[in-house]
């Protein structure tokens, strides 16, 4: 690990050449191991930031900042969807329907421990994914459902976002490579606000493997 740690430290110190730095900055979005190493390196050196003086006048900078903000940060969106639908709703309806433009790259049917279909994930790649529940899920007070995918064993599970009830909204997924055949998707029950570790920590509500929809 120390090679990675050393590279992370040089990255944090701004000592790498610009091309390498740009490449490693992009990698922060999808390589969880790298991102964690950089986080640790930052925190090791952070006491030096804390020695900086606390200067007055920062609040006056707000107007200049606000004028430059876009409408909302780019992020993976859960597209609009209906409320939880009745169990048994045919999955074929989603596949063959005209709902989806463009077509999802992959579709995964997530089943619970007993094999009962629970939700369908359509991942469009880029910033969009959609989840649709095909049976009702009870989420205990103080808990929240979180959706994950496993792009590769090296990357480890990556959060696609938190769900509010069985009607999805929010999210903070990183830009990932296009999803592939057999890629794992799962929903876990996490503390409200999401997994504290950035990895699944709670019970798995449902999981399933993706099938490419474009014959690749």
């Amino acid at each position: 690990m120390s090679e990675t740690d050393l590279r992370a430290e040089e990255f944090v110190l701004g000592l790498l050449d610009p091309a390498t730095e740009a490449e490693l900055t992009d990698a922060l979005e999808h390589d969880r191991v790298w991102a964690a190493a950089v986080g640790r390196a930052r925190d090791r050196l952070r006491p030096l930031d804390d020695t900086a003086p606390d200067l007055p006048g920062a609040a006056r900078l707000w107007d200049g900042v606000a004028a430059r903000l876009g409408p909302a940060p780019a992020r993976r969106r859960w597209l609009p969807l209906g409320a939880a639908t009745a169990a048994g709703l045919a999955v074929g309806l989603f596949i063959g329907g005209t709902w989806f433009t463009p077509d999802p790259i992959v579709l995964a049917v997530l089943v619970d421990e007993a094999g009962t279909p629970t939700a369908v994930v359509e991942d469009f790649g880029h910033a969009d994914a959609r989840i649709r529940f095909v049976r009702d899920i009870q989420v205990p007070q103080g808990r929240q459902m979180q959706v994950w995918t496993l792009p590769s064993a090296e990357t480890g599970p990556v959060s696609l976002g938190l769900l509010r009830g069985a009607a999805g909204t929010e999210l903070d997924a990183p830009r990932l490579p296009d999803p592939g055949n057999g890629q794992l998707y799962e929903i876990t029950l996490e503390p409200a606000g999401g997994s504290p570790t950035g990895r699944p920590t709670g019970a798995i509500l449902a999981k399933g493997l993706a099938a490419r929809q474009d014959g690749v």
Binding site: V12, G39, L171, D172, S195, G198
Partner: peptide, 24 residues
Amino acid sequence: MVRIWQKAHQFHAGDGSAHGWIFA
């Protein structure tokens, strides 16, 4: 501040402290 706004969705609580992230 503008970069923080644009990249906030990339911050993962497991990857070091939030202060370390904004100062970086």
